[in-house]
C-alpha cells in the first residue's frame, strides 16, 4: 500500500536540497519570523505620526489562516511586542467555507475563526499564512474578510513563497522564497502543532 505525503527516502535530486530532511531549520524559522516582525514594525512606523513611531501598530491586526497561519500570527505578534513593546491584535479566519475546491477536495473539519473584539473595520489587516502557492487560500481569506468587515487595507505575510501562482496575488512580506516544482510538496511544521519547527521539501507521492 502506497503511503502518502511523507518525505520520500529515495527522493530524486530536487531543487535546493538533494538529501532528505529539512531545508529550513528551527533556527532559520525563528530568524525569518524575527525579520518579518521588524519589517511589520517599520511598515507601521511609516503610517504613524513622526513623534510616535509605534502608534501605527495600534491599527494593525494580524489574522492567521488556519491551520499553521494562526500560530504564525501569534508568534509574529509576540515578536513585535518584544521588539516594540506594543501588543498588537491577533485573530484567525477559517477559510474552509470559502474555498472554491469543495467539490474536488471534499469536506474538511472547520477550524476556529476568532477576531479581535474591536473588529477589523478601518484597520490594517495582515493575513498570515505558512505557504503561498496557488493563491487560492488567500483569495478565500479575502472573501471571508469582506463578510467580516471593511479594513483600511489588507496585506499578506507568508513564511514561504514556493511560486506557481494561479491568481494575481503576491505577498507583501516573505520569510523565504523557495523555488519548487509542482510535483513537490512543501511542508511547514510548527512546534505548536507538529512539535518541531522546520520546513521540508519532498517529492509528492502520486495519490
Amino acid at each position: 500500500m502506497a503511503s502518502s505525503a511523507q518525505p520520500v527516502r529515495n527522493a530524486a535530486p530536487s531543487v535546493g536540497d538533494p538529501t532528505p530532511g529539512p531545508v529550513l531549520s528551527a533556527a532559520d524559522v525563528a530568524r525569518m519570523v524575527d525579520r518579518m516582525a521588524h519589517q511589520l514594525i517599520e511598515r507601521c512606523a511609516t503610517d504613524a505620526p513622526a513623534d510616535d513611531a509605534t502608534a501605527g501598530l495600534a491599527g494593525l491586526v494580524l489574522v492567521g489562516i488556519p491551520t499553521r497561519g494562526a500560530p504564525l500570527a501569534r508568534r509574529l505578534a509576540a515578536r513585535i511586542e518584544a521588539f516594540s513593546g506594543v501588543r498588537v491584535d491577533v485573530g484567525a479566519v477559517d477559510i474552509t467555507l470559502y474555498r472554491d475546491d469543495l467539490r474536488r477536495r471534499g469536506v474538511r473539519a472547520l477550524e476556529p475563526t476568532e477576531l479581535p473584539a474591536g473588529g477589523i473595520d478601518d484597520r490594517l489587516v495582515v493575513l498570515v499564512d505558512d505557504v503561498l502557492y496557488s493563491g487560492r487560500s488567500v483569495r478565500a481569506a479575502l472573501d471571508a474578510l469582506r463578510d467580516v468587515g471593511r479594513p483600511r487595507a489588507v496585506q499578506l505575510a507568508v513564511l514561504v513563497d514556493r511560486g506557481h501562482r494561479e491568481l494575481p496575488i503576491r505577498a507583501d512580506l516573505v520569510g523565504k522564497n523557495l523555488p519548487t516544482s509542482r510535483t513537490q510538496k512543501v511542508s511547514v511544521r510548527l512546534a505548536e502543532i507538529d512539535g518541531v519547527d522546520e520546513v521540508l521539501v519532498s517529492d509528492e507521492v502520486a495519490r
Binding site: 477559517d94 467555507l97 470559502y98 472547520l110 477550524e111 476556529p112 475563526t113 472573501d143 463578510d147 467580516v148
Partner: peptide, 15 residues
Amino acid sequence: QIDQALSGREVKKLP
C-alpha cells in the same frame, strides 16, 4: 465553528 464564525457578523451568509 460555524456559530463562532458567524457570531457578531452583519453578513450571516457564507459562499
